[in-house]
Design a protein around this nucleic acid. Sequence first.
DNA 1: TAGGTGACTTGACTGTTATCAAGATACTAG
DNA 2: CTAGTATCTTGATAACAGTCAAGTCACCTA
Lengths: 211, 211
Amino acid sequence: MADLCVNLVPLFNALPQDEKMQIEKLVQHKNYQKGEVIIDPTINDNLVIVADGNAKQYTLDEDGYENVLQILHTGDYIGEDWLFGQENINNYVEATEHSEICLLKRQDLLKLMHKQPELSIRLLELNIVKVSEMQKQIHLLALPKVEDRLLKYLQTYADEIGKNNFTLPLKMKDLALYLGTTPETLSRKFALLKKQGQLKRQLRRIELFEN
Amino acid sequence: MADLCVNLVPLFNALPQDEKMQIEKLVQHKNYQKGEVIIDPTINDNLVIVADGNAKQYTLDEDGYENVLQILHTGDYIGEDWLFGQENINNYVEATEHSEICLLKRQDLLKLMHKQPELSIRLLELNIVKVSEMQKQIHLLALPKVEDRLLKYLQTYADEIGKNNFTLPLKMKDLALYLGTTPETLSRKFALLKKQGQLKRQLRRIELFEN
DNA sequence: TAGGTGACTTGACTGTTATCAAGATACTAG
DNA sequence: CTAGTATCTTGATAACAGTCAAGTCACCTA
């Protein structure tokens, strides 16, 4: 394994390394065969991190029909919501191939937090920062013009990673959805911004110019 | 004072009454005259709750020009961001009339949290729920059509308060801004939804029909 | 009750964006 | 290397939303 499981989860992202290590110690590494169920409604207090492999999250409707919500690839994770508070009703996660999974139990994390109040205070801090950033992003998305939304998105992303040239983390189609528009319009807007000299672009490779 | 200051702040909203009381004990009540500065960059670790009166939040630009960011009325508050982590640079809050203000110091709250890990864990839980709700809202705002955004907003609000008829908490103008549109368009969209039989409406009084 | 103010609505017009269809470009597997 | 597929781009058109202006309605105060 190249990296700590804990490093894959945004909730823990900005924690200092030593605190991450403490959490990492609580993590169980497990191997699952294709078709094995990792999470079902009776076991609903785990954070599930896919260290290697693939899994699917799904619910079952009253007819017993499977409803796939999400495909989890290597590096994806699920359960941040229900690790605290949120109920997990009718939620399944199943390995779709042989996979290495990291599990973090709610109770274990809570225990650690009780022992070290600092940890939960820090997590709270990080989370509040996250909320205020999301609020900014909500304002961003409320901009009426697509080109404004796009530019603002790019600038925000550049700020986050601290570079002016980067590769877009999303496909055009997904970025379009994210920005509340269509791939076609997005394509045109990229062309527009390029013409205005605000950026250079080769497919998903972007170079932003400051103004 | 009709209510506890703590009850006015969303961060604490869902806490049980006894935990709220503990926080309330840490709150300082102070009266400010018109023009008095409540917060400046040297005093930046307070949560400010306006129990009665009005205040304004502003920054100063390099020319010393005042830049009003927000008007705080009775019941509004400010500082959730910088109570943890976030830096407060160049941020001022000033009473615009005689006002009763509640102040909660960062250090006091942190101390309480250290004594009672439960509290910060609970705050963390609440905050994570908030994040997952905001994520839903971001998806909502990314809907391309205003009528879809409006309807979704109304449905979400109805779900939250558990009623199908309610009074809108915002003025049309503000709701328009919030949904990334204009009051005019909003007005037309309300008319459209009414014509489609999705709701009844008298000004801000809404009755939603299920589908 | 009357007059005034701010909030909301309606109309006409313009600019922007979604949609549909076709074409170009990159990616993948054989 | 090539065929096949998915992704992205471009064009034409129609639907949609923003803007400005004028009007209506509700609410507050005298």
